[in-house]
Amino acid sequence: MADTIILEVERFHPERDTEPSYQSFEVPLRADWMVLDALNFIKDQLDGSLAFRWSCRMGICGSCGMTINGVPKLTCETLLMDFAPGPVRVGPLDHFPVVKDLVVEMDDFMAKLQKVRPWIVRKDDFKPQREFIQTPAQLEAFHQFSLCINCTLCYAACPVSGLDSNFIGPAAIALAHRYNLDSRDQGQEDRLDIISQHEGIWDCTVVGECSTVCPKGVDPSLAIQQYKLTATKEWFKSFLLPRGKN
C-alpha cells in the first residue's frame, strides 16, 4: 500500500475569494493518524495558512467537526487509513457560514442554544444544603442527552437546518429535552414556549440523520419526537381547557 495519501482540502479566504476551491496536499498515510493529524501535518509542514479548529484531540471539545468525503465527522476521531487509497476530501461543516477555510461561524448556533435555557431552572428559591439525590432511574432518563459536546455535526447533517436557518435544530432541542427530563429542573414550561413554535420541533420532518452522525451516541431525533408528543398533549390541553395564564 502507498505510504502517502492525497488530502483535498477546501480553501476559502473571505477577503480574496468569492468561491471556495479545493487544494490538494500529499501527506504521509500512517496507521495511527486521524484526519486531524494529517491537517496538522499540512499546517506544520506544507502550508501554515490553513485554518481549522481543534483542541482536545479526544472527541470531547467538539471543535474539530468537518465534512469528510461528504459526511460530517470529528476529524480527531476519524482514521485517515479508512479512506486509503484516497483521495480524501475535507471541507467545513455544511449549513454554516465559513469564516476561513475549514472554520465555520458558530454564533447562530450559540444563540439558539441560549434560547432553550440549557441549564437547571428553579422556580422556587430552593437552596440546596447538600447534593441533590437522584435515583439511577432519574439519571438514566436524561443521561444520553447530556453527552452532547456541541460539535454541531447534527446541524451539518440535517437537511432541514440547511433549508431553514431559523430551525432551532437537533442539539439545542436535545439539550432542552435533557433539562426537561432532569428531576431537579422546573423550566419545562418556559422551554416549551420556545420549542413548540414552528421553528422548534415542528420544522423537523424526521429524517433522522442527526442521530446517525452524532459521535456521542445522542439521539436528537428521539428527543424531538418525544417533545412533539409532549407539545401535542399540551396543545390539546390548552385547547380543551383554554383558561391559560396568557
Partner: peptide
C-alpha cells in the same frame, strides 16, 4: 403559557402520527 405564538402543527402531526 403563551399558547398564542405556538404552532398549530400538533393537530396535523397528531393525525400523521396516528
Amino acid at each position: 403559557m403563551s399558547s398564542a405564538k405556538r404552532s398549530n402543527e400538533p393537530i396535523v402531526w397528531f393525525l400523521f402520527g396516528v
